[in-house]
Design a protein around this nucleic acid. Sequence first.
DNA 1: TGCACGATGAAC
DNA 2: TTCATCGTGCAC
Length: 183
Amino acid sequence: MPLPREFYARKTLTVARDLLGRVLVHQDGPVRRAGVIVETEAYVGPHDLACHASKGRTARTDVMFGLPGHAYVYLIYGMYDCFNVVTEREGHPSAVLVRAVAPIEGCVGKTDGPGKLCRAMNITRALNRADLMTSALTIEEGTRVSPRRIEKGPRIGVDYAGDWAHEHLRFWVRGDPHVSRRR
DNA sequence: TGCACGATGAAC
DNA sequence: TTCATCGTGCAC
């Protein structure tokens, strides 16, 4: 069963933490690809200079202004896809980037980074705007991670975002080997 | 119409 | 530390 839309219709920070331990599932034709989410980042709104929606509502960022629980998949550096889930209320652009999963089934190659997990689970821009309630891409309940096992720190690769680069909006499961290693 | 620059990963 | 590679947003 997919997590309900109300799960995503909360503060982005809350959703980012609560997504740890949940299971990302891509029903890729006959193949089921799944992994436990172990690392996330929150992009909290138009005032967040690291959030793509801080540029305004464009063809690319439009989905973030819509209903929560939809996929925002974009191309980064000309070669990698990154998977996000839209959060909060319609009209408020925000999302959670899933940075790493622990593979369960159907994953090809490593999953310890946002580009890598998309490649391993065959998540591409074809799934941009997909509704996680009704499409081949979904997130299931999984197992909640105890707050004492959750660590947080600054987001990766957003040094351009001024003060927002220092905010602790990245969350991961302490000690999990599938968390991305970069700093 | 052109151009600088990434929410990265992998090689050196 | 460098580079592959291209869509996006913004300057002209």
